[in-house]
Each structure stands twice: as C-alpha cells, then as structure tokens.
Design a protein around this nucleic acid. Structure first.
Lengths: 245, 245
DNA sequence: CGTCGCGTTGACATTTTTCAAAGTGGGTGG
DNA sequence: CCACCCACTTTGAAAAATGTCAACGCGACG
C-alpha cells in the first residue's frame, strides 16, 4: 500500500514512530477517485467522516442564499479535509475537486481513537488546525484590506508557497486549474475584474500567463507590495512530548 | 478559587470528569488584569503560552506594512487565545483588550501534557479550534461577498449570538465597546462608511443606537438578508469516547 | 458545423473611499 | 464649575475602485 499523504505531511513536521504510522494507516479507509469538478460533500449532508487528500486539489466553499459563493480554502495532498465540520453533525462547507483527485476516508470515530492512543499525533493535528486558522486569517486580511492587485498577488504567492512544500524545490510556475470565476470567488472580486487585473499584472511584468499556466516573474515585488509571509515552511511541535515507544 | 471560564465553556459541550477539571485547573496559571486598550501580546513576540479569557473582550488583529489593520476575531470569556500561534515560536497576531479584562496563562507545555493525559479534553479543544475556523470562514464570506449593510448585520448578529451563549437567555441589546474604526477594520470598510451604514440601518429600523449600546430591532429581517447561521448553540463531541474514570 | 464555457473588452452604474470640515461628548486641568 | 481638548462620529462633495451588462472572440468538444 502506498504511504498515505497525511503520513508524509506529518513527517515533514516531526519524525513519526512506527506506532504512530500504523495508527494512521489503520484509521484511513476506502480510497476514492473524484473527477475534476465533482462535489465530494455538500453542505448539510451528514458528515461522520473526514477526508485525506491523497492526490489533486479541492476547494472548500460556502454558498449564500443569493447564489453568491465564497471559496474559503484550497486543499492539497496531505491535507485533512472536513475538520471544519467536526464540531457539527452536518457538513458546514462544500468540498469540490478542482482537478482529478483521490481521497481516503478517516472517520470521526477513528480520529477519536487516535486522540486516545496517539497523543502526539493529536497534538500535530491540533497544530495543523491552528495553521489552517492562520491561513484563513491571512486570506481575510487580504480580502478585507487590500485592492484587487494585491489580493491576486497574495493568492498566487500562497498557492506557490504551498506547492513548494510538496514539490521539494523552488518553483516559479505552476498550473492554475481555476476559472476566473473561481478566482474571483476566492478573493472577493468579479470574474470581469479578475480578468482585467490579471491583465494588468502581466503588463506590469509581475506574472506571465500561458493558458492555465502561471509564471511568477517578479516575486520580490509582489511580496514587497503585499507583505506576504510564507507560513508553510515549518510548524512548531516542540511543546509536544516524544511519542510513546 | 473561581472556576475557570475555560472549564465552564467546555462543560457546555460535555460533562467533564473530576480528573479533567483538575487537569485544567492545574494547567492554568497566573491570572492577570489587562486594562481596556492594552495589548497583551504583539506579533513577533515569543509565545510559549496561550491565554484563557476569564473576563472581558479581546480582539486578534494583523497589521499590514501599510499601516492598515484587519481585526480577525473577538475573544470572549472561555475562549482559548493564541491557538493560532501554536504552530510557530512567535505570535502571529496581536491581541488587544477591547474592554477591561482578565486572562490566565496556559503554557504550551502544559497543553501538551493535557493532550497526553486527557485525550477527550484534547478532542474538545480540537473541536473548538475547528469551530474557530468556521467562524473565520463566515467572516471571510461576509467580507468577500456582501455589501456594507450585510457585513455590519452579520457582525452584530454574530456578537449577539456569542453573548447569548454566556448570558444564558435571549438578549436583544448589548454594549458594543468598539469604535467605528475598529468595526471597519473587522468587516473591511472605512470608518466613514461604517458611520453612514449604521445610520442607514437605523433609518431602516433594523437597529437602534444609544451611545455604545446597540439594540437589534428586526433580527428576522437581518437574518433573512444575510443568511446568518448561529453556530454557537452546540458543538458535537459524540465522536469522542467518555473520559477515563 | 454549431454549441458551450470561458476569457476579454467597452461603456456605464454603483459602491466605497478619500479628503475635509464641523458636530458631539466625556474627561481634565485651571 | 467652566473651558478646553481630544477622540470619536457625522456630513458633504468629489474621486477611485469595483460591479454590471452586453457583446465578441476563442478553443474544446460533440
């Protein structure tokens, strides 16, 4: 069996013991393919399970009564999806595959078991949840207090930073599988304004586009202009005791 | 010794065992008074401890290089503050007392001990963190996809819902200790526009103001207009096993 | 070949910001 | 007790950013 993406993620932050790895392997079930564009879980549906992204992108979104949509967050391989619904019996957000994807399930009950038997894993998951919190805070700051160009810059820098974690090297271009409507729903702009602003960013020499591919040309200027901070490089776990042996 | 507000909060979600209560009492240290307007912790400062709000309001904020500020979240009694910084050695946000307040400290190391010895508490804290994520998501949705009137409505409804949790009854007015600059920094508007929009809400008969006091007159219409969902009523914890005895 | 989703562009409308000034009220020192 | 001050709120007019509506282009796909 392939090593779970969640195990790989956690191993970036701490060395896992065999027992910890086994506990995760045991808890994850039922790998499922999800084709691009398909919704994995809709708001209001019962949710007694979480999902681990093994491959591909997802997004989490809320839909307003008016039909408007806010995309809250993207989920990459190794992310635990659906934690936001853990405190309620029904899902709070929609989860939709942005690209062809594979997930495995981790039931809430099994998560409870991990909390009981593998306290350090629990702590790491807690830290990941806190990191998610900060990512949302950064997006909120961007949407609440920046203009359109800065919002798109932070989005691109953010995606770049997250991809670099798994890519293992420094990348400066990537495939951006979102439509401009999706992008607008992420940063709080209209698709029309997204189109104009991306055009302007190209004119300014900040980025270069080729179909769905985006190349970042002047990362330094984009960072200076937005105050972007890459928070994905590390997470602190020294407050957690070493694992049981 | 007074019962910790965190214990009270958790007891709303699950019946705590004596061992769980003791573990929390033991972990919390050093109550401190914080006068209104004082900053408890600034971004970038070392943070090896979390804070439990015992009394009063705080807000968590980010400051941009430009000087702009985004207020991310308000913390009420029973909230665990600083969890967002748990994955980093330095604080990520500023925490400022909105009103005169009292906090106690809960060091990260003691939190680690709770995770090891009281797995169900760990699970409850995880659920609280997930709930915090959802609250941020709701704010992001409001700022990203609603106009000024709706943003202010959701803010007022949100504060109202959170105060009702502790007030124990249905309240329809409350003291709002924020300046209009603060409010604007919360919902992504200028103080000038906040002033205008609050005036309009009064004209429309949605609210009524008296100094710093706000009375909600037409909650039904505000809810219908925003799709607001009160998520503070309950949190699910049935995926957690009963506490050790 | 036609259709459909997506991106682009233009003209115009609306919302929100900016800048400036005046009003208000609570607190403080004389 | 009064006068002043300071932070905050309110108001107006003009500017800027963003949204809306509509048309067109383009490529993928049946």
């Amino acid at each position: 069996m392939r090593k779970s993406a969640l195990v790989q993620r956690l191993e970036q932050y701490a060395t896992l013991s065999a027992g910890e790895r086994d506990a995760l392997d045991w808890a994850e079930r039922r790998e499922t393919r999800v084709p691009a564009g398909e919704r994995l879980l809709g708001r209001g549906e019962n949710s007694d399970t979480l999902y681990v992204v093994q491959l591909g992108w997802f997004h989490a979104a809320i839909r307003l009564p008016t039909g408007a949509r806010q995309i809250l967050r993207f989920h990459f391989p190794g992310d635990l999806m659906g934690t936001s619904s853990i405190a309620w019996a029904q899902a709070v957000h929609d989860f939709t595959a942005v690209s062809d994807a594979i997930v495995s399930e981790l039931s809430k009950v099994n998560l409870g078991r991990i909390f009981r038997e593998q306290p350090r894993l629990a702590g790491l998951l807690y830290a990941m949840s806190a990191a998610e919190n900060v990512a949302l805070s950064d997006r909120l700051t961007s949407v609440g207090r920046m203009d359109s160009l800065q919002r798109l810059s932070t989005l691109i820098l953010d995606v770049l930073a997250r991809l670099r974690v798994t890519a293992g090297g420094v990348i400066d271009s990537f495939d951006f599988p979102l439509t401009q409507t999706d992008i607008g729903d992420t940063v709080g702009l209209t698709k029309v304004h997204v189109s104009r602003t991306l055009g302007k960013m190209e004119d300014l020499g900040l980025i270069q586009r080729n179909g769905k591919r985006v190349r970042v040309l002047d990362e330094a200027r984009m960072i200076a202009d937005t105050g972007f901070v890459d928070r994905y490089k590390e997470i602190e776990s020294s407050w957690l005791a070493p694992p049981p042996t």
